[in-house]
């Protein structure tokens, strides 16, 4: 299978702290890949490096054959990486529908002039955006909340909305940063089903950070374990999770 994401020797320092060092990873097209590790291991930093929030000191990131190292966040989004955040970052004061429509920003375009003067392009694209956004909301079972203000949604729905917004950018690779954080076992179960569904429905490649071992061992095909900014183990989920070193560093005896 072809590679979707190829990361080589990625590294970044903050002052004297080497937050991520010699990080390499390769995710195949259509794969569901997990990134785990203890708190402070540098998992979210890796996501921030992949999405251009931080610029790596060393190494390269290749997305679907295209070098995206050092690009700006917005460019990387256009290149095809979408993400969610550990602490949910929705557009809180905007309606749910507009959150998803904001995600469609680069999929449906019209000029500012067309927007202000209400030219035909405005009505045509807005209609397409409304339809597409409603489709996505339906997939994530949020279509009943389309007109509600995003910050007013319950926690689980906010998480789903964030994924819907990310999917609206029509990405090649979806990064999920602890999607199950703060969820109860039932919600986690639903989330697992939803992730599997998204993967099948959109033929999506997914890289996720997670602490919930049930979720990780349930849906991830391959894992990378990060510890103190370095790769501790890499490979098929069951092999990695039974690795004595991983158990010692992360899972506990």
């Amino acid at each position: 299978m072809a590679q979707m994401l190829e990361v080589r020797n990625l590294g970044i320092s903050f002052g004297g702290l080497r937050a991520v060092n010699e990080f390499s990873l390769s995710v195949k097209k259509g794969q569901l890949y997990g990134l785990i590790g203890p708190n402070g291991a540098g998992k979210t930093t890796v996501f921030n490096l992949l999405t251009g929030v931080y610029k790596p000191d060393t190494g390269s990131v290749i997305l679907d054959g295209k070098d995206i190292t050092g690009m700006k966040t917005a460019q990387i989004s256009r290149a095809g990486i979408a993400r969610t955040f550990q602490n949910i970052r929705l557009f809180g004061k905007m309606p749910v529908l507009d959150n998803v429509k904001a995600g469609l920003h680069n999929r449906h375009r019209y000029s500012s002039v067309a927007g202000i003067l209400r030219l035909p392009a405005y009505f045509k694209e807005e209609k397409l955006m409304d339809e597409r956004a409603m489709e996505l909301l339906k997939v994530f079972d949020l279509d009943g909340d389309a007109e509600k203000i995003a910050s007013g949604l319950p926690y689980g729905k906010q998480r789903r909305l964030e994924i819907a917004r990310a999917m609206a950018t029509d990405p090649k690779l979806l990064l999920l940063d602890e999607p199950a954080a703060g969820m109860n076992p039932k919600e986690t179960q639903e989330l697992m089903e939803m992730i599997s569904f998204v993967r099948k429905e959109f033929d999506m490649t997914i890289l996720l950070i997670e602490h919930d071992m049930r979720l990780v061992s349930g849906i991830c095909e391959e894992l990378t374990v990060l510890n103190f900014g370095e790769v501790l183990a890499q490979g098929a989920t069951q092999t990695v999770l039974s690795d004595p070193e991983v158990i010692a560093a992360y899972l506990g005896e």
């Binding site: 700006k72 917005a74 979408a82 929705l90 905007m94 429509k101 920003h105 927007g115």
Partner: peptide
């Protein structure tokens, strides 16, 4: 307008969706 309000509500998230 949506893009501008998105930036207001969360600059980082707005960047992450390509604004």
């Amino acid at each position: 307008g949506r893009a501008v309000m998105a930036i207001r509500d969360s600059r980082i998230a707005a960047e992450s969706i390509g604004i």
